[in-house]
C-alpha cells in the first residue's frame, strides 16, 4: 500500500504541475492509478515508484504519475445535446460570422480524442460546414495524445456513447481493436499543451471545448486556466464547459444548460439570449 506520505507527495506534484486537485484520502484510487505506471517503469509497487520519484525526482517519471492521476475523457458524444447544438447552430453561425475565414475549434483537454472525433464524425456528414472548420486538439498527456492520434479504441470504448451506425461507417476492425478511418483522423491536428503554461502562442479560436476538466482542478489553477481560455477566445467566440465545471463570470451565457458561453465581444447577442 502507498503510505499517507506517498499520497501527499503525489498530490503536491499533481497540484504543482497540472493544477490537479487530488484527494489524498482516496488511497485505493491512487494505488489503482499508479500501480500500472509503476509496473511500466519497472518498480514492484506504487510505493516503490513514489519513493523513487521523491528521491530522484526524475522529470519524465513525475509526468507519468501526474498523467495517471488526471481523469481522461473517455466517452464519445458525451452530452449529446451539446454536439447537436454545435453542429446544428453554433458552428454554422460562427462560420457565417467568419465570412469565408475558417472557424478554428480547439479541444483543450482532449484525452483519448473521443470528443474531437465525435465532432469530426458529425462534420464528415456535413461537408459544406466541414470545409469551413479546422479542428485542433491538445492534452497534457503524451500517452493520451498518442492514443488519440492513433485512433485505436477497445471494444468497450467504442460502446461508450458511439452509435452503432457511426461505428460501422467510420471504423474498421484491427485485431481486437477498432480503428477510426484515416479520413476522420486527418481532420484533427494535435499538440501537447499544459493549460497552466502561457497560452498566448497557442493562438485564438472561435470555439474552445474544455469540458469536465476545470472541476477537477484546484481553485488557483481554475482561475488561471479560466483566464487563459478567455484570452484564447477570438472575439465573438464560444467556450463549452462541462455541467459541473465552474463558470467564468466574465463570459456571457449562451446556452448555460449545455455549458455554452460567449466571449465578451458578443454582449448584444447574449443580452437577448
Amino acid at each position: 500500500m502507498i503510505s499517507a506520505a506517498d499520497r501527499m507527495f503525489v498530490a503536491a506534484l499533481c497540484l504543482a504541475r497540472a493544477g490537479l486537485k487530488v484527494d489524498v484520502e482516496k488511497s485505493y484510487l491512487m494505488e489503482s492509478r499508479l500501480a500500472p505506471v509503476a509496473r511500466r517503469e519497472g518498480y514492484s509497487s506504487a510505493h516503490e515508484f513514489v519513493a523513487a520519484l521523491r528521491d530522484r525526482g526524475e522529470e519524465r517519471q513525475g509526468w507519468a504519475a501526474v498523467e495517471a492521476m488526471a481523469v481522461p475523457e473517455c466517452e464519445f458524444f458525451r452530452d449529446r445535446g451539446m454536439f447537436h447544438a454545435l453542429a446544428g447552430s453554433v458552428l454554422p453561425a460562427l462560420a457565417q460570422a467568419r465570412a469565408g475565414e475558417t472557424v478554428r475549434v480547439w479541444s483543450a483537454a482532449c484525452g483519448g480524442g473521443q470528443e474531437i472525433y465525435s465532432l469530426a464524425m458529425m462534420l464528415a456528414d456535413a461537408p459544406p460546414l466541414a470545409a469551413k472548420v479546422e479542428l485542433f486538439a491538445s492534452d497534457l498527456s503524451e500517452r493520451s495524445l498518442e492514443k488519440a492520434q492513433a485512433g485505436l479504441y477497445s471494444q468497450f470504448e467504442v460502446q461508450c456513447g458511439l452509435p452503432a451506425r457511426m461505428l460501422v461507417r467510420h471504423f474498421e476492425k484491427q485485431g481486437e481493436a477498432f480503428a477510426l478511418s484515416p479520413r476522420i483522423r486527418q481532420m484533427v491536428r494535435w499538440r501537447r499543451v499544459n493549460l497552466l503554461d502561457d497560452l498566448s502562442r497557442v493562438g485564438q479560436f472561435e470555439l474552445i471545448l474544455c469540458r469536465n476538466l476545470l472541476g477537477q482542478l484546484a481553485p488557483e489553477a481554475q482561475g488561471r486556466i479560466t483566464a487563459s481560455l478567455r484570452r484564447a477566445l477570438a472575439p465573438g467566440g464560444r467556450l463549452a464547459v462541462g455541467g459541473r465545471d465552474p463558470v467564468d463570470p466574465q463570459l456571457a451565457p449562451i446556452r448555460p444548460e449545455l455549458g455554452l458561453y460567449a466571449a465578451e465581444a458578443d454582449t448584444p447577442r447574449s443580452a437577448a439570449a
Binding site: 471494444q155 452503432a164 451506425r165 461505428l167 460501422v168 471504423f171 474498421e172 476492425k173
Partner: peptide, 11 residues
C-alpha cells in the same frame, strides 16, 4: 459477433 460486417448486416 464483433465484426463490422456482421454489425452492418444487423443494422
Amino acid at each position: 459477433e464483433n465484426e463490422i460486417e456482421r454489425i452492418r448486416e444487423a443494422l
